[in-house]
């Protein structure tokens, strides 16, 4: 690990200030991706601004037809929250599938979303549920937030503060794990609710999470498992690696979507 300076402010405004200071500052949320990356010297930052002490960034609140989750809420807190389980069980389920228990105890929703790993679960959760990402500057819809592999709409100095999820009528997340990393080889969030029918796919796309519009269109007509067609995306846009070729991933998208719909409608 290269050396860096470290701060852990209690106020968001201080974090904003610190994030604007120095050569290459970065935010430290749960650190479950950042710290291993630094350890392997794959990245170098002049300073880490730890968000861990900012109370305003934590907590889970049901606000009417919406669930608001603070950015520094851990996967474990989401997975074990009665509020989340009552409002959007699919989200509890998804959070409970991230990494392993120890990673869930540290990793946060804000960190995961900001990192936008193409195989992470939360991006599918956000896009598939039509979430809104709140930052210190603005609100960004999930549709606009995930720009590409490890790329988001976040600007320099922008900090995710919370995420809002509209409570869907039904939603399910089904994941096919990579046998080695247990990240999603393909993960599909299917939901039906105020933001329509959404089918978001993680783990498969070259450019990260995406919506499978062909499957959405079919489900629009008939929201049953048997109506799920083959994925509409071109294999050229899907990842191929030593674990899974694009055609297998494409196949799994439909299978996972079908299983998600079956679970949602059972």
């Amino acid at each position: 690990m290269y050396n860096f300076t470290y701060s852990n402010p209690e106020m968001l405004s201080d974090a904003e200030h610190l994030l604007g200071t120095g050569e290459s500052p970065t935010l430290l949320a749960g650190g479950q991706t950042l710290l291993p990356t630094l350890k392997l010297r794959l990245a170098q930052h002049s300073s880490l601004v730890d968000l861990g002490r900012i109370v305003a960034l934590k907590g889970i609140v049901a606000e009417g037809s919406c669930l608001r989750i603070g950015a520094m809420t851990t996967h474990w807190e989401v997975a074990s929250s009665a509020t989340v389980a009552a409002a959007i069980p699919a989200l509890s389920q998804l959070a409970g599938m991230i990494g392993d228990p120890q990673v869930r105890h540290r990793g946060t929703i804000g960190g995961s979303v900001a990192n936008n790993d193409p195989s992470a679960d939360y991006p599918a959760g956000c896009l598939g549920l039509g979430a809104t990402i709140h930052t210190n500057r603005r609100d960004i819809s999930a549709d606009d937030f995930f720009v590409g592999m490890f790329e988001t709409a976040l600007e320099n100095g922008e900090i995710i503060t919370a995420l809002s999820f509209p409570v869907p009528e039904v939603a399910t997340y089904v994941k096919y794990p990579n046998p080695a990393s247990r990240y999603a080889l393909v993960g599909v969030m299917v939901s039906k609710g105020v933001s329509g029918i959404r089918v978001a796919v993680t783990g498969a796309g070259n450019a990260g999470v995406f919506r499978d519009t062909a499957i959405e269109a079919a489900l629009q007509k008939n929201f049953v498992a048997d109506a799920v067609p083959e994925s509409g995306v071109s294999e050229d846009t899907l990842m191929s690696d030593m674990h899974a070729a694009a055609d297998y991933r494409k196949h799994l998208i439909a299978v996972m979507a079908r299983r998600a719909v079956a679970a949602a409608t059972s």
């Binding site: 046998p179 080695a180 990393s181 990240y183 030593m242 674990h243």
Partner: peptide
């Protein structure tokens, strides 16, 4: 798994070696 052209080790961590 090594990359057959470059010889880089593709399964170089527990992320890729199952």
């Amino acid at each position: 798994v090594y990359d057959s052209e470059t010889g880089q080790l593709l399964s170089g961590s527990f992320m890729d070696y199952a």
